[in-house]
């Protein structure tokens, strides 16, 4: 059985994801505004910490802390950090039956639609905080011409890893039906371990080790490290390769869980 649909089908699914989210422009703008406001708070705290530590902290100077902050705030919408329960809702309501009655691989179809969503989020949720950051706090300009294309690849992989993790949480609905508690737990732990609240290199050693044993740093810390050139050359490529590894792992795990879930499926509500 072919896993990937032909290009036209894939493009239609990506476009469907894009257009669905593009319907709610005000919501996207409100999200961008919130991310920006919290960015101001976050960057102020981090700059305060750096000042107290004598100008730099864990190898981050003021400009790098600002760049980290605005990139990570911009990525919130793109990698969709907070509470995505669409698949869980479909399981809960039984609408999953519709998805199963289509000639599509569920995981691939959802992933393609999520990529479309991420593309739309890039236009609003990423651009707005970054523009504000650049205007009022300053951003570090990459030194290498390869940084930008590598950052794009790294961000796409970040979306895939994030999607893989979110899908796994959602698939628990096949067993639990109500995943709200699980989602809250997931959002709390994953945002910390992604390096969304403070950069992972600022963590105490034990927490840093723990974080890097999870796929979460591949979602935010990795693309930010690529963009800020904390790693460069082969090291940066190795980082992106590790994201690819995490993406493969969470997707394969998702397939196994999905296969088990559909075997035991009870479609809710008649």
């Amino acid at each position: 059985m072919r896993l990937l649909p032909p290009p036209r089908t894939a493009a239609a699914l990506v476009a469907a994801g894009f257009r669905r989210w593009a319907t709610y422009r005000q919501a996207a703008l409100a999200g961008a505004f919130t991310n920006t406001v919290f960015g101001v708070v976050k960057v102020s705290v981090l700059l305060g910490v750096a000042a107290a530590a004598g100008g730099s902290v864990a190898g981050y100077d003021r400009l790098e802390l600002s760049t980290y902050t605005w990139l990570s705030q911009g990525l919130i919408g793109v990698v969709h950090v907070f509470g995505w329960t669409e698949v869980a809702e479909r399981v809960r309501s039984g609408d999953i039956a519709i998805d199963l009655a289509r000639p599509l691989d569920l995981q691939v179809a959802w992933l393609l639609q999520d990529l479309g969503r991420a593309a739309y989020a890039t236009g609003v949720r990423f651009v707005v905080p970054l523009a504000v950051g650049a205007l009022f706090f300053g951003l570090r300009v990459p030194g290498s011409v390869w940084t930008l294309p590598l950052f794009v690849v790294s961000t796409v992989l970040a979306v895939v890893v994030s999607f893989g993790c979110r899908l796994l949480v959602n698939l628990c609905a096949f067993w639990l039906l109500d995943v709200r508690g699980l989602v809250t737990f997931y959002v709390l732990t994953s945002t910390l371990l992604m390096g969304m609240i403070v950069p992972v290199p600022l963590f105490p050693t034990w927490l840093r080790v723990l974080a890097y044993a999870t796929p979460f740093p591949a979602i935010v810390q990795a693309p930010v490290d690529v963009a800020t050139e904390r790693l460069s050359g082969l090291d940066a490529l190795a980082l992106v390769a590790s994201q690819l590894g995490w993406a493969a792992l969470v997707l394969v795990l998702g397939r196994i869980v999905l296969a088990r879930a559909t075997r035991r499926l009870v479609v809710q509500g008649g």
Binding site: P5, A16, R19, A101, G270
Partner: peptide
């Protein structure tokens, strides 16, 4: 398949869009 109590259409999109997406899904 039509499940009378569920929707196979994209809730947020114009009806015509759903048909276009489905045509692409069915190749």
């Amino acid at each position: 398949v039509v499940f009378g109590q569920r929707s196979a259409l994209w809730w947020d999109l114009p009806l015509g869009d759903s048909f276009r997406i489905l045509a692409a899904i069915h190749r």
